[in-house]
Design a protein around this nucleic acid. Sequence first.
RNA 1: GCUCGGAUGGUGGAAUUGGUAGACACGUUGGACUUAAAAUCCAAUGACCAUUGCGGUCGUGCGGGUUCAAGUCCCGCUCCGAGUACCA
Length: 1152
Amino acid sequence: MAYDYKAIEQKWQKHWAKEQTFKARQPQDFTGEPKPPFYVLDMFPYPSGAGLHVGHPLGYIASDIYARYKRHSGYNVLHPQGYDSFGLPAEQYAIQTGQHPAKTTETNIKRYREQLDKIGFSFDWSREVRTSDPKYYKWTQWIFIQLFESWYDEAAQKSKPISDLVQMFEKEGNSGVQAVCNDDTAEFSAEDWNAFSEDEKEQHLLNYRLTYLAETEVNWCPALGTVLANDEIVNGVSERGGHPVVRKKMKQWSMRISAFAERLLSGLDDLDWSESLKETQKNWIGKSVGALVKFPILSFPKGEENTKSGYMTGSNNSYLLLEKAKENRNHPTEAEKALWTQLRGKKLSGYKFKQQHLIGDYIADFVCLSKSLVIEVDGGYHNETKEYDEESTEFLNSKGFEVIRFKNEEVIGNIDEVLEQIQNKLDSLPSYKKNQTSKTSEASIDKKPLSLGEGQGERTISAFTTRPDTIFGVSFITLAPEHDLVSEITTPEQREAVDTYVKAAARRSERERMADVKSITGVFTGAFAEHPLTHKPIPIWIGDYVLASYGTGAVMAVPCGDQRDHDFAKHFDIPIPNVFEGIDISEEAYTDKTNATKIANSDFLNGLGVLEAIPKAIKALADMGAGDKKINYRLRDAVFSRQRYWGEPFPVYYVNDLPKMIAEQHLPLELPEVEKYLPTEDGAPPLGRATDWAWDTEANQVVSNVKIDHKSVFPLELNTMPGWAGSSWYLFRYMEEQNNRDQHIASEEALNYWKNVDLYIGGSEHATGHLLYSRFWTKFLNDRGVLPVEEPFKKLINQGMILGESAFVYRWNLNVRGDNSKTIFVSKSIIDKSIERGINLIDYSEAFASQVYNILDGDQLISSKTQISHFSPLHVDVSLVNTSNQLDIEGLKKIKPEFKDAHFITNEDGKFLVSREVEKMSKSKFNVVNPDDVCEEYGADSLRLYEMFLGPIEQAKPWNTAGLSGVHNFLKKLWKLYSSQDPSQGGESDFQISNQPASKESLKTLHKTIKKVTQDIEDFSFNTSVSTFMICVNELTQQKCNSREILEPLAVLISPYAPHIAEELWEGLGHSEGISEVDYPLFEEKHLKEDSKTYPISFNGKMRFTMDLSLDLSKDDIEEIVMADERTQKQLEGRTPKKVIIVPGKIVNIVG
RNA sequence: GCUCGGAUGGUGGAAUUGGUAGACACGUUGGACUUAAAAUCCAAUGACCAUUGCGGUCGUGCGGGUUCAAGUCCCGCUCCGAGUACCA
């Protein structure tokens, strides 16, 4: 009986479907203790119209092998499949054809399923999910509502119900609340809160909700009519279709994923994912540790100092005031000096004072910032008028400062008395309350009363830096052109230049900016900021190398330590102070962060390495209120709205423009019908075309738009959710059976039993999208007690791409006098040989020339030495080319009518050869191999084995159809091992199985195989296990083994890889129960025990010959035997070895 | 630029803690069977030299090093792939 793979595969596929062989059991289905669970999942497929090519099933086959292996090993395996069925392609198709996307999606799914079924996967289809099914997206909407009803507690690092936050606001306002919120969140007290109207409260709460509506700059793709997430843009154009993307402000739903940045980062450590994938996520989250430094703005225009009369002319003169203060500090009166000595030493229970500190337009003699206390010493040569004193006291009081004044004589005469007074005053004053509402420490610095700059009534520029140790190297500040302060600080002289630059920068698309990395552009604003430590003025520039969206949109430029700053400084002739000891920075910046290099020209940082200097610099800045440690993340909040039809509707309606959630019990809110899938004429999303898209809050149902009265009937949200909404939680849906899905995502029992995905396999293209978002949602749902786990996918394997081998024919670009329109293709080998010989193509051979002249029909050929550029390569369908690269010319003419009159010049043997090149598999390259065809020609088991045999699962590799015959032959050999070896015996059941004990040799072969294959499967090294099977079958064939003792375990061993043939063989062995849950064979060491070993005998490390020696021999015995051997003597040629290395059981090496 | 992978015959790829480099398969060549083809089976197949037999030399991207012994470990490069990018 021959191996009839078609009949066998059909038979078992039907059997599995009918018996529901691979249905996973729920914990309650077990009578006793449930089997341990194991969850194997493939990345959610999007059912595209193109169907599967051989690259797609690679991961499915690997996961299927693992799932089947785990079933043999006693696990209750969950191995489901379903469809991510909302998405752009179906919608694009709908726009073009008017067909409802649900319909195309359905057709595509059907085709997908047919293809999948042919490969014999052990999917539990009873649990299938589709994201576009209302029963499914009901829960996507439900999760959205949970996010809306939650805020993020920064102290606890946990999402919590928004009602908790409301209670806190009622009691204490938002000043003491450590919550993640929008940057522009205003401060309010409990009284403020309680006085707010409901709408105002709602407005404020939106700043805290984990999904919120906000005016955001988005990536708008006009061609697709929708916004795109950052990970949907590749090189400045849309990932799908390659359309241009522009920045645009829109009101959008966003997800506060940035709140989870730290957890998403640290959580990676415990995941069994590839390093490169973790790395990609790390980069995407982009954590940088550094400091936020505040630079007071001295917007007094340069060069105008002398035109202003004095320093009391307004608020725009702090530059001069600072100079004055500095002067005062350097020349204190005697009394000031005495008091400062006391205050500076922190003699007053640690209170910190500043001397000659600028507050608004006034210079205070001493100030304690933390208590808002000013101490003035009157008299001496820093004398001021009485009016001035009163005026200043009034001003300082208005700014929240207490002022106490002492006379010169008091200070000098009785300093203890003065100090005591100050101490008492300090004790009686309340400390400022640290404001912790804000998301960043930047904002909390802002809110400290009287931090540097603010106390001067001036604004500051905050800049994030990872190198606070180089603070003394700052020689300018660069703002992003979009920075809010730009228009405010620009001096009249510079206004025109700045405006022109800002406008030009805004017009430049992302793409242009990207293409033009090299050119250095920027403009001076005319304004200056004060260096917080040296108090020197530093110029403020704008430049588009600074990104508005990263950090604060401002850079403190350290040209000696940052290459971009260096380039900028050089280009605009800005000084480049050097703060590195013994480093030449004249040509380029010194960016190394080695601790060995010491800081120089930096006051108190001199002589320190980076590691010591950074904390010291931060401390100094913090002490002055001019900066603080800061952790910055690149990860932005994710825009969640799409101006699309084919996605989940938001369960949201609007009252007074404020979003309200539809109550859970009325979900799902189903997608309405529209007559066209395009945006409306006035630019609203497609849902704006729906006639019935309003929410009746009394009847709790969707009603006609005409009923909108803004009293009980309100408009519904017109955006839909993005693709990642449904795919961020689907893994948990599979944990519940179809019938029990109404009341929850999955039952608590099921969630606790299955927990999370043990093995997840898919492509690496989802590294930052799907995999990050689903981790985010899982953490959130875990916080809120919905899920028992923190992470969705414990182990993840990225399958490599299978590449296609494209085939090219070469069209000769004829150069003739006369008719130039003839199409001539030349066999590749002729071209190659002719180039190799360096001749004119026409001189290749006489036969060739006569063919050509025949075709040319009298036209004259202008010929020159053959070059590859004389030919145009054209992709031809790989199905027309055989494994010897020979083209089916007639076949090509049939499917490409434009070549029906073309001429093909063949080799002498009549063959026409193509050239091949490895490229990505794609329709446009005509190199797609369809798994259906492979199943037809070789069978599913062959396809499965070959895909695994190609190479390591994670590696990209080309598909070569020729290789299939190898694995197919192997299956035939395997079959022969079980069935009659002698074809003359024939008959019905011709399995020739012996019940006699197996030979020692065969047992060894079997157990060697068990050991290796089991190890390989655990290591996901499927390619080597296939070769192990081949070796095993080759050996058993050699041994003429037909013993049941061997063949039964072998069938089980191979069943994860080639399940159809394994079932058939198992049945042939006389079993009525299927093979899928038969115990995995046990490895027994004893069968591998050898008593001798073939030793390689090496001389100076080079193997010369081998010797079979008993393993019982001692080192000395071995040496004796080896040295006695004549081959050894021959190698030594009479020399005496210096040394003999013997590793028993391994090797003998003779040195000498 | 940065980060992470990778480089082994004509091809896909093996090689566990450093211990017989090239397993297994494809392809190629020769042979058997056959009227013939297909299928099947057998043999050879890293390169070079020798071939009358024995055999010898060189070989894992390049240059060094450690070691009795290096594809494997260390140092320095080259090239290829992927991701990411004015990220301060």
